[in-house]
């Protein structure tokens, strides 16, 4: 049997030249597409099938009294902007990591995390606020599908934050040299994915009536 490579090379060898971990995170993201497709599909199939209020758009009746529209667009537009900002910031952080620019890496990573935390905060506020306005988790199909879809997205954002904070701690301890930038790139790819899911949810749930 012919020898192809020296042993030292074997652990870095990949047939495509793409790092295993990068391919893995993309594969996982592909799989996650189906997860969110199922949740979005459920939301859309049940849209407008409620037997009682509230509904997402327009006025609705609670004990015979007209209520204002449930979904609050300005609030969620603010949250959407935060996520878009954070996606922008994390590419700058990654750029810094790859160039070995520590200040750029840590500064933008911190900014990303701050935006993410505010997004989650926005969502917590939104959920609480809706609950006070009479929309509990089990109130009707809209409330259940809405909280489940956006809640699972929020859970993904939270996990992404945990990941980014972990990378930040590693970077602060000076253990994220350019050759290990992939450790940030994987977290960043996941973070962007969470962002693009929101890019879909934002019009589908909030803007389309």
């Amino acid at each position: 049997m012919a020898t192809a490579h020296a042993h030292a090379d074997d652990h870095h060898y990949t047939a495509t030249g793409i790092d295993n971990r990068k391919l893995a995170i993309w594969t996982f993201i592909g799989s996650e597409c189906m997860f969110f497709a199922s949740l979005i599909g459920t939301y859309l199939v049940y849209k407008g099938r409620d037997v009682v209020g509230p509904k997402p758009h327009g006025e609705w009746l609670l004990n015979g009294v007209a209520q204002e529209q449930m979904l609050e667009i300005p609030l969620v537009t603010f949250g959407t902007a935060l996520l878009l900002f954070s996606s922008f910031f994390v590419v700058l952080a990654l750029n810094g990591a790859q160039k070995g620019n520590r200040k750029q890496l840590i500064g933008w990573l911190l900014a990303t995390i701050v935006c993410g935390v505010f997004f989650v905060g926005m969502q917590v506020y939104e959920f609480n606020h809706f609950a006070h306005r009479g929309m509990g988790y089990t109130t009707n199909l809209f409330s259940s599908t809405f909280y489940t879809l956006t809640g699972f997205h929020g859970t993904h954002v939270t996990l992404g934050l945990v990941w980014l904070v972990s990378v930040l701690v590693v970077a602060l301890r000076g253990k994220l040299p350019p050759e290990k930038a992939l450790n940030l790139e994987m977290a960043a790819l996941y973070w962007h994915f969470v962002d693009v899911v929101w890019i879909v949810i934002f019009p589908v749930v909030y803007l389309i009536r």
Partner: peptide, 11 residues
Amino acid sequence: ATAHAPAHAEG
């Protein structure tokens, strides 16, 4: 795998 090492493919 001849094209490039992964580390250089980035960036």
